[in-house]
Amino acid sequence: MMGEPLTFADRRPVLAGWAAVLRVVEGLWTWYRRNWRAAVVSSVLQPLLMLMAFGIGFGSLIDTSARAAQATGGVRYLVYLAPALLAVSAVQTAAFESSYPILSSFKWRRTYEAVTATPITPGQLAVGQLTWIALRLIMSGGAYLLVIMLFGAVRGPGVLAAWVFAVLCGMAFSALLVAFSAAQEQEGGAFTAIFRFVVLPMTLFSGTFFPISQLPRVVQPLAWVSPLWHGTELARGAALGTLQLSAAAGHLGYLVALLVVGVQLTRWQFRVRLTR
């Protein structure tokens, strides 16, 4: 019944900086390897279904309409919609990955507590978690890209830039939401509100399905706040080759600023919650 006596190895140096962050990413990857199915459904299949429903189903209603052609700049609705959905799917995947799983890791699974009992610091854990989400967005964005190529909704290599912009847009939102999730103590009723009052309106009113110029003039400024509008403009502009440099700089600046603020807030929240 007795096991062998344990051996004791030499001390090893503590990992620092990105080396530590990468170990966090690796831990999350190990989890993902066993639990990938959910991710495929939510981040690849879902945008694909949206594309089929609106790009093809709804598109067939309007592709003959002159009004529609004017709004989409003359391209088929499928081609108009596809790059924008790339940004939408990045934001939606980010929303899902940045809400319940974060709270759960603090509160129910308590896995963050386990990680920070090791040399990994709360700040490294925070950055590792965000890096992991970014990798998820890159992977699912890549899968989506392959699909829209099969649908013939890709016009040229500009779509690769759209991919990058979509991930940036998703991360700008993710970092803020992770910080918010890390501050939640309760069962997460707040997430329902976030999904319905932030994610959904953002998806619907950020110029994804129709240009925001179709909205009443008073609500248009609301879209300017939404990271998804900036992401959509960038992704669609890059994919259709209509992006102007000055506009692009503005959109990029806004998204990068949100990202920086979000990362700092997340690191701060992790530190507060894990070192009480």
Binding site: F58, S65, L200, F209, Q214, P216
Partner: peptide, 21 residues
């Protein structure tokens, strides 16, 4: 918030997409 979900869809799709249809 559950009450607003269909409302948002109605506003966005009815108004925005409706203008294309």
């Amino acid at each position: 918030s559950g009450f607003f979900e269909p409302l948002f869809y109605l506003m966005a799709m009815g108004q925005g997409l409706g203008s294309l249809v």
